[in-house]
Simulated assay, not measured.
Amino acid sequence: MPYELFRHKGHVCLMFSDLCDEGGGAVQANQFLIVNDDTGAIIDPGGNLAYSELYLAMTRHFAPSRLSAIVASHADPDIIAALDRWMTATPDAKLYVSTLWERFVPHFCKPGKTTGRIIGMPDSGMRIPIGNSELIALPAHFMHAEGNFQFYDPISRILFSGDLGVSLMAGKQAQQVITSLSPMPPGMEAFHRRYMVSNKILRFWARMARQLPIDMIVPQHGAPLQGPAVKQFIDWVEGLSCGIDLMTDANYAIPR
């Protein structure tokens, strides 16, 4: 069953958190459905491990054939590896992905299947129409991918943050909203120290994020952040040393 993040006057945001068989060793991942004015978009629909369950679960709430947009924060397998199947299931949907990845994602599909259906998002971001509303694609480069975006929904005031804000837990646990970072959610600190490229990037992001009215930060892995946890997270990552900040010569030694 999906977790309902938001519902008001026909605008709905759903999170699917437990569709992968984690016993098979795959990382837990969230997928998102946004519906406005009988038009839908899916954010980071995932790979083949999630496709069948996500398709069936979505049909209970919205016909996949009516999706107008497939939105990808970046091009990792857990984000978009099932693209070939989604291109078949959603004949009218466009794929929105960074211009850096628009010539790479066709490798997930049979030849010609993405022709005319990919919209490359420029580094500066863009606005993606969804019914009578929109998703705002925000630059999130190097957190962790070179061409990376987050998606802000101005109606629900949810920031779909991709790999920023991640915690590591099972799918059912991911439906338990985090309202405080004390104690720190499992795996959050270690994940960000490894997967975020540098503190410089996080400082840039924090300055941008503070300009938005954010009620909830919802990552692609783990649980949503809400209430005091939103400000706490922004303040925390702004001061976090990570990625290349932590590298030394010892990390680039020839193995014995």
Rank of each mutant, 00 (worst) to 15 (best):
S98G: 14
I128Q: 06
I217M: 11
T248E: 09
K110Q: 12
A26L: 13
R7H: 11
S182I: 11
F62E: 14
D44C: 05
A253P: 00
I201K: 04
F233V: 08
A190R: 01
S198K: 02
G187D: 03
M216L: 12
H221Y: 03
K94F: 12
L181R: 05
F151S: 07
P213Q: 10
G147P: 13
K94V: 10
Y3E: 06
G171N: 02
P228R: 08
G10H: 08
E189H: 01
N30L: 03
A206M: 03
I79G: 00
S124H: 08
V27L: 07
D163L: 11
F32Q: 06
N199G: 13
C20L: 15
H11A: 10
D153A: 08
S124R: 12
D44H: 03
D123F: 09
G125W: 06
T39Y: 00
V105Y: 05
M121N: 03
L54D: 07
I201M: 09
I79E: 07
A206I: 01
R66C: 11
I128A: 06
P185H: 08
A145R: 12
N199E: 14
E4K: 01
I42L: 07
I136G: 02
W236H: 11
P45E: 06
G239N: 12
D215M: 02
D78S: 10
P122Q: 04
H74D: 15
K110L: 10
G165R: 02
L95D: 07
G222I: 06
V237C: 05
V177W: 12
S180F: 10
D163W: 07
A29M: 04
Q28Y: 01
G162H: 07
R193C: 07
P2N: 01
I119Q: 04
S133E: 13
L95N: 06
D78V: 05
D123P: 01
T114D: 10
L56S: 14
M58A: 11
S52M: 06
R203H: 05
A223Q: 05
K200F: 12
H192F: 03
A140R: 01
D123Q: 12
G25F: 05
M216S: 11
M169S: 09
S68C: 13
A170Q: 04
A69V: 13
L135D: 04
L159V: 10
V71I: 15
G227N: 12
Y252A: 13
Y152N: 07
L135Y: 07
I234P: 07
H8Y: 10
Q176I: 09
G239M: 04
F160C: 09
Q226A: 15
M184G: 08
H221R: 13
A145D: 15
D153E: 08
A253N: 09
I43D: 03
S17W: 08
D38P: 00
G131K: 03
R85K: 12
C242F: 06
A145L: 05
C242G: 10
S182T: 15
G239L: 05
I244M: 09
F151W: 09
R85C: 00
G165C: 05
C242I: 05
M169H: 03
F142Y: 14
E189C: 02
G165Y: 04
D245H: 02
A223N: 06
R85T: 00
D37S: 15
G131Y: 05
P154K: 07
D163Q: 11
S241C: 11
L83I: 01
S156A: 10
R85N: 01
R193T: 03
D44R: 08
F104H: 09
Q211G: 14
K200I: 05
P106R: 02
W205M: 14
